[in-house]
Nucleic acid binder design. Sequence first.
DNA 1: CATATCACG
DNA 2: ACGTACGTGATATGG
Length: 419
Amino acid sequence: MLLEVEQPLEPILAEMEYCGIRIDSAYLQELSQQLEKRLAELEENTYQAAGRKFNLGSPKQLSEILLEKIPDEFQKKSRKTKTGYSTDAAVLDKLQGDHPIVDDLLEHRTLSKLKSTYVDALPQLVRADTGRVHTDFNQAATGTGRLSSSNPNMQNIPIRTEFSRQIRKAFLPEPGWLMVSADYSQIELRILAHLSQEPVLIEAYQNNRDVHTVTAQLLFEKEEITPDERRFGKTINFGVIYGMGAIKFGKSMGKSAADGKKFIERFNQRYSKVFEYLEQVKKEAIALGYVSTILGRRRYLNFERLSDLKGTNPEAIHPDRLKSLTKNDAQSLRAAANAPIQGSSADIIKLAMIEVNKILQNYQARLLLQVHDELIFEVPPDEWEELQPKIKDAMENALPLSVPLIVDIHAGKNWMETK
DNA sequence: CATATCACG
DNA sequence: ACGTACGTGATATGG
């Protein structure tokens, strides 16, 4: 693992850091001015509605305002934090309609985050000697084997909202070149299919089916699935990857306890290998003190009330010991269930980076960024047609699994256009 | 330096 | 009784 993956990867990361990525600072400064104008309007509206000025960036002061204006709704719909009532986006969403201030607060939160963290920060990090931004890729920062990125973090550049996509337009290739993004489709669910050897999942992926729809079909026991039902299937599939327990699983159905239980049994029957696999991983975590990825990378875990089982035979652990747990032990078990999946995904994209780097030796094109399940390149236009299938193949075949890996690859004038 | 919040996969 | 569950890093506030 060390010799085959981490050591060969290190000079590739060094090259990516050294190369950096081009930023359109003038464009970001225009965006900044637009944001400043809009933020000022929102502040003015908010002060009017609140009857006085306060610091919109202070959850503490906002909490005071909300307690003053809509005490009943706020206390009912908020949750307690260590220091008081939460004013986070989930809470504010629930308060929409209760007071005219709420919509403006939400918009202000979003826009000021984007302005301070990206629009204003990135141009300041452009290095004078290269004209580009040079991130750090941290190779030993996470518990699962993923990379992390800092100064600046290039792995959390906005994409989810319409406005935030404007920020991605600021990331440019060399003048005249193309920006290229190649991302794995549903890699973590495919790894779950492989690790669990669940026949329903394997069959679905081998036949190129939409797995969120498949889950929804077995959930609702019908062929035709609405977009809402598919979204629900997607949520459940992610929940499984994150180690969501059967109880929470039933409750997220939003049905009665009896319905939830019936549904769990149905799901359990249909994806029985997935649950067997997750149980087995949890038992191994407790008995061995670690869990492993496909390439043998380990995540070590400590338990409180379950520590008496360390060094015992995993198969001898009674399923009841996985119930009534301390908060910490429950969290550790979820982390244990997730680590082989998230970590194997990291293994695979690292192997892919090593393969892709070999290919790039014969081209001018450069690997710029890794964002967990995607690679970002800048490519001269005359290399694109030839490189596209080579990058795709290298990534899809980095490590053969029981299910195919699929990579979507697109080129554009900037990062936003590569989707 | 702890906390809350929020950006991403 | 719950808008939750895995992995990160940056920013602002406030002690």
